[in-house]
Computed example of a mutant assay.
Amino acid sequence: MQISSNFDSGNIQVLAANDPSDIQLAINKDNGSEFYQWFHFKLHNNERVEHNIRIVNAGQSAYVEGWHDYQAVASYDREHWFRVPTEFDGQELKITFMPEFDSVYFAYFQPYSYERHQDLLHQAQLDIDCELQVLGQTLDGRDMSLLKIGEEGADKKAVWITARQHPGETMAEWFVEGFIDRLLDEDDGVARALLNKAVFYIVPNMNPDGSVRGHLRTNAIGVNLNREWQSPSMEQSPEVFLVTEKMKQTGVDMHLDIHGDEALPYNFVAGCEGCPSYDERHKALEDKFKQVLLAITPEFQDEKGYDKDEPGQANLTVGSNWVGETFKCLAYTIEMPFKDNALLPDYSVGWSGERSSLFGRDVLTAVYHVVDDLR
């Protein structure tokens, strides 16, 4: 039996793997940080017997509530992922699995590889409406890539989409893949109408270093990028620094920052209610966006989510708050579940990359319905 994580976004420490009935593992912390929750490893074993996998340090992870009612994902071909029986006893996460083939991958959520990220960028650039830009480099020397879709113009709205500030939240890049796929569909009326009115600036992966390293929440040196927006630096958070500098050049009329939540089994949004400049116009934009999304997809709801900030008490180091306040624009954090959408459960795959992608396509319709009101 062999267990390995020496691959893109791999993360696991093997403590004991001599007996399939008692495999003991631990999740490694993000480099330079106390955060850990993301795991991704491969198990190779020719024996067709029940495997009992124990992640022994789950009870001390970043979001312990994320393990309750959680099911890990597995794949034989790295393309089709399914949920596997998983239990949490308060300390250990226990996965029970009977392999059908010699080799199987396990992960916290369906991975989105760096190679797929590159494919997304370079396939998109082939479209006549799309331009691939490199804003600069990360601390590990990877490109900070941006897709500009549409032609700029004085009357065009600037719509920004950022995703995967927290690298373990891979559903965010799956969401963006669906969003881009629809936006570049020349037969889609919503997409064509939007590109007549807006130009899109899309950063599919805000944290490529953390993604490749197998981090949950931080960049190469353990910095949580979604607490850097008020004062980013090239030394600590070049990813945010480069994006905010570009935003200052283009202006921002709308910003969606795409994330995943470990604990809550719902799709929801978090707005700018606590920003000092928040007013009735801002509230009307937020309400319209949510009402449209509620009307077009049962995957979205607005009853469960984060507590709203008190007036003037927003944390302006958070991306959507900083953008909303700086540019006085509609800015939302969109959250998706690691577990499942409890209102529309799928017991085989739970919430998945495919469902995230479809949700991204739906969100384009909501953007269409508010674009004329952005300014």
Rank of each mutant, 00 (worst) to 15 (best):
L294S: 13
Q249H: 03
E186G: 11
F82Q: 08
H122D: 06
N315C: 11
D185T: 07
D127E: 06
V56E: 11
E310V: 07
L343S: 12
G59S: 08
W38M: 04
A158T: 08
T170Y: 01
N226T: 09
Q291K: 15
E87P: 00
F241I: 02
I296A: 03
L264W: 01
L15I: 14
T297A: 02
T162S: 06
R182I: 12
L135R: 07
S113H: 04
E286L: 09
K246P: 06
H51V: 11
A295L: 12
E47G: 02
F200N: 02
D22Y: 12
Q123K: 03
T333M: 10
L285W: 01
D181N: 14
H369E: 15
A163W: 08
F35K: 12
Y36N: 12
D372G: 09
G312A: 05
E50H: 08
Q230P: 02
Q118R: 10
L343W: 06
T86L: 00
Y201R: 04
F241E: 13
D279N: 15
K148W: 01
R83W: 04
Q165E: 13
P311R: 03
D8Q: 14
E235T: 13
V318H: 01
E151S: 03
N46L: 09
G214P: 03
F179A: 00
E50A: 12
F327Q: 01
E335Y: 05
Y347W: 07
D129M: 02
F82I: 08
Y63I: 13
Y105T: 09
P238T: 09
A342E: 13
Y114T: 13
Q24A: 14
Q249V: 11
G312Y: 04
S103R: 05
W81A: 01
M206C: 12
M234Y: 11
P298Y: 07
W160Y: 09
W81K: 03
P20I: 13
P337M: 08
A62E: 12
